[in-house]
Design a protein around this nucleic acid. Structure first.
Lengths: 291, 291
DNA sequence: CAGGGTGCCTGACAAAAGTCAGGCAATATC
DNA sequence: GATATTGCCTGACTTTTGTCAGGCACCCTG
């Protein structure tokens, strides 16, 4: 590691730390201390179980209790006993709370938009921010099953198709390909997994159930910002676990020699090349793996 | 501004904010509260004037006074009256303070190095961090005169020469070019300006005095992360101000048609193309400007 | 239904950070 | 040389955040 590289990294930290002061302005800009603002933000983002919020924000139980009380006194949240377990409590925004949350969101959006709009090349800046964010937090990546209809899943697939269209010599039109029915990629026939980091999907993989004695792995994609970090391996291991849990013993997949990094990855990770097993126009390489 | 772009920017903020928690671990990792640690850090980085530190850290005068007293009690700093103005005070690290500061530096270096070393492509990550840091803080850019021997100036020049070597069809060897004597680019004959952001040089420009009735503008360079943001314009205006202050009425410069963005920039900003005025082997376009 | 565990609340503190009014000495201004 | 200003200090606060022990209601287990 050169001294220069460390100096540049630390310069980045300095820049970002002072910018986080400005970011806090979107947290502090409404005359509320950081603690209550963070709790409000967490609730607004869908966390309701008090214990979950506490774990997420790493707050002491006593402090959490008082912060919630404060928000209740302001009329922003209501706290009720959870239905399934009356010891647990569940927080939820009142209409006033929702309005207040929306104001915080607007502040954050404004700030994000300000940064982007004063830059001469926003797309390059976004790509750089994605790369940095993924590098900083990669360990926090969570792999979770979602319905294919989840908007984040759809966004991944759209990017994936766009990339195939650019990389296949003849382009790519998903409607000509054997597009799996959504319910083939949902339990109990299959699964669709999303790799999520800081709320953004950075990869996906589908498991498509068939009636032919095997399941197919489809739509394995990793965001450019997360490549070469081993995410495909995590996704494939998770897909194999899903398959085992569904009682599937054989997996197949197809890919294209225009994607050499994918072909190499499957070769390296225990897949065996087999003859063509479908008549999809796009793939030209076929693999199988027994679990 | 698309919604997606804002979401990506905000995701970056989230990622970086939680990483700043980790950064604070390098500030808090030595059992000292944030306040005193920040003051120690500021003094270690060369700030000594108490009022300057206060302005930089945005601290109340009372709080600042107490923090300094705490560091004095720990034996880490000594505070003395300033020589020029006995109302002002000046803080300076004791040997123990220097050792403590070095420990903080080591923690920060370790953290920077950890981020880089776990990434598959550190140079790409560094470039992304540079781009983001420059975008976030561009308004804070300071243009300051330095001796050409300043290590930051030398680093800029080395990068500049490297870039010329890549872009000139026949390469670039500074020893074959008319490399100005250092003292031609220092007062009273000339100047060398550095654009500094968060402690890192992101651009430079030299003013080389001659005995021929004009001064030359040399070594105008902007870091890749800061291009297209108008920095060259700021630098040139500052160079012109320096020239006027030195009583110089005519500026000349040479450049190369392999650098079309530079040629275009000079054409747009009031320079007149003139015939070749030197026998340097590299340039093929020549400009003049009267102040 | 007794006993142990869990989730949240309360009270009592303590540390850290921030605020404000006044005070003192040095300096600038007229 | 009187007067105002500046830079820092001190004391006396408040707010925010964090910590800890105990308590109560609820849940699970046998």
């Amino acid at each position: 590691m050169t001294t220069n590289a460390i100096a540049r990294t630390r310069r980045f930290h300095r820049a970002v730390t002072s910018e986080v002061g400005a970011l806090d302005s979107s947290f502090l800009g409404r005359g509320r201390p950081l603690g209550p603002a963070r709790v409000l933000h967490a609730i607004g983002n869908g966390l309701s179980d008090v214990a979950e919020i506490r774990a997420h924000l790493k707050l002491d139980s006593g402090l959490m209790s008082r912060l919630l009380r404060g928000l209740e006194d302001e009329g922003l949240v209501t706290v009720t006993a959870s239905e399934s377990d009356a010891r647990r409590r569940s927080a939820c925004l009142t209409p006033a709370g929702k309005a207040e949350f929306a104001e915080y969101e607007a502040l954050s959006d404004q700030q994000a938009s300000a940064i982007l709009s004063r830059h001469p090349h926003p797309e390059a800046l976004l790509q750089a921010m994605d790369l940095v964010a993924t590098a900083l937090g990669f360990d926090r990546t969570a792999i979770q099953p979602v319905p294919v209809s989840d908007p984040r899943a759809q966004a991944c697939l759209a990017t994936y198709y766009g990339e195939l269209a650019r990389r296949f010599p003849a382009g790519f039109d998903v409607s000509l390909s054997a597009d799996p029915e959504a319910r083939d990629m949902e339990p109990p026939r299959g699964a669709f997994l999303l790799a999520v980091l800081d709320g953004m999907a950075i990869g996906c993989a589908g498991l498509k159930g068939t009636d032919k004695g095997y399941a197919e792995v489809k739509r394995v994609w990793v965001a450019p910002s997360a490549r070469r970090m081993g995410l495909a391996g995590f996704l494939m291991r998770a897909i194999e676990d899903e398959a085992r849990a569904l009682g599937i013993a054989t997996l197949r997949l197809d890919t294209n020699s225009a994607l050499p990094e994918a072909v190499g990855f499957y070769r390296r990770s225990g897949w065996t090349e087999i003859p063509r097993f479908n008549d999809d126009p796009y793939p030209d390489v076929f693999f199988e793996k027994h679990l």
